[in-house]
Simulated assay, not measured.
Amino acid sequence: MVRIGMLGSGFVADFYMDGLRDVPGTEVVANYSRSEERANEFGRRHGVARQYTTMEDLCADREVEMVVIGLPNHLHLPAVRAAAAERKAIVCTKPLARNGHEAADMVNLARDAGVMHAYAETEVFSPDVMRARQMIESGAIGDVLTVRAREAHSGPHAQHFWDAETAGGGALLDMGCHTVEAARYFFGKEHRIKDVFAWGATMVHNDRTTGEDNAVLLLRLEDGRTSLTEASWTAKGGMELRNEIYGTMGRIVTDTSSTRLRAFIQQPAGYLMEKADAEVGWVFPIPDEARVYGYHEEMRHFVDCFVKGEQPREDFIDGYIVNSVLDAAYKSMKSGHWEAVHIDTKVADG
């Protein structure tokens, strides 16, 4: 039995609990929130035995073997520091950190502690995206030439996302982290990202954030191939999670948030999907949403790696590289030029 401590009691922590539901041999034995009331409510709802109001106390719990971090971006580094100090295996939500410097610190903390570190980038564990990668590996579309991705919704659900200084960025950090890692997954991680060109602006939510609510990112590999990202916090009508992969012999399109279930309703039916903008009229619920988004597969993989003493296929080094790419993108937003992606080989290669 792998015993897990959950750091967080919000939206993403609920998704992680759902993701762990069908992973055999696991039990969440403790959860944390700064608010005692929220910690207790989360524990009651999910049947968790113990609640803590400091990260350090949860990480010191002798029964906890693996810590899952589902906290706001500015708390990821302190959470990793607390978990590493107690030699706990660590799973951290996306983005790994607010910037490459923080991410590098997190890599080094986990590496120095000698613990498993997993980067919970759900996009590359979505069954749709994993199947697309399998098709690429089979040679079905020949050599991958370009990737185009769009991640969009009408805006974050939690207030901390809107504080760009505390969060580390706006829509590009929040959603571009998905698409950058998906591009690496489709092209193959052995192909290094050379440089990026980016644009971002606050087009709608000027009253809520100083961060960009729309952004475009063009990244270029060393061999010249490119990936294009559109990220938006102003798109009405629910989540958009799409990838288009173009090869020399075909193309693949994933549309993770699309669903075969649709309904016209005149009374609300409860929760429908993440970032749904309507409760009545035509609605498009997503059955088993956590599985569709990749939470089940990533949690199964991370637990399996922990049991076997292996490092996951997505770890903090991947998160560090993504943060470094996005650092260059924010620099490009200001300069209006292509900006090189700088990767510290001591961090990336150990």
Rank of each mutant, 00 (worst) to 15 (best):
I4R: 08
G5K: 07
G8L: 03
A13N: 00
D14S: 11
F15S: 00
D18W: 04
L20S: 01
R21V: 04
V28L: 03
N31E: 07
S33Y: 02
F42N: 02
R45T: 08
R45L: 09
A49Q: 11
Q51N: 12
Q51H: 14
Q51R: 13
T53S: 07
D57I: 04
L58W: 01
C59G: 03
A60D: 04
M66P: 00
V68Y: 01
I69N: 08
P72S: 07
N73M: 04
H74F: 12
H74A: 14
H76A: 02
A79R: 13
A79M: 09
R81M: 06
A84K: 01
A89T: 07
I90Y: 05
T93E: 13
P95L: 00
P95N: 01
A97Y: 03
N99G: 05
N99Y: 02
N99L: 07
M116G: 07
M116R: 06
A118W: 08
A120I: 04
E123P: 10
S126Y: 01
P127S: 05
P127H: 05
V129Q: 10
A132I: 01
M135K: 08
I136R: 02
I136C: 11
S138A: 12
I141G: 07
D143E: 14
V144G: 07
L145G: 13
R150F: 07
E151H: 14
A152G: 06
Q159P: 00
H160C: 13
W162G: 00
E165A: 14
A167D: 11
G169T: 00
G170R: 00
L172S: 01
D174S: 12
M175K: 15
V180M: 08
V180R: 02
E181W: 12
A182N: 12
Y185V: 06
F186G: 06
G188K: 07
H191C: 10
I193F: 03
D195E: 15
V196C: 01
F197M: 15
W199V: 15
V204T: 15
V204L: 12
L217A: 04
L219V: 06
R220I: 10
E222R: 10
D223E: 03
W233T: 01
E244W: 12
I245C: 05
I245W: 01
G247H: 02
G247L: 03
I252D: 10
I252N: 09
I252T: 05
V253E: 06
S257C: 10
R260L: 11
L261T: 13
R262Q: 13
P268L: 03
A269Y: 15
Y271D: 08
Y271C: 06
E279Q: 15
D288S: 11
A290K: 01
V292C: 04
G294M: 03
H296C: 14
E297V: 11
E297C: 10
R300C: 11
C305L: 00
F306K: 15
K308T: 02
K308N: 13
P312W: 02
D315M: 10
I317Y: 09
D318K: 04
I321P: 05
S324R: 15
V325W: 10
A328G: 07
A329T: 00
K334N: 09
A340M: 13
V341L: 05
H342P: 12
D344P: 02
D344C: 03
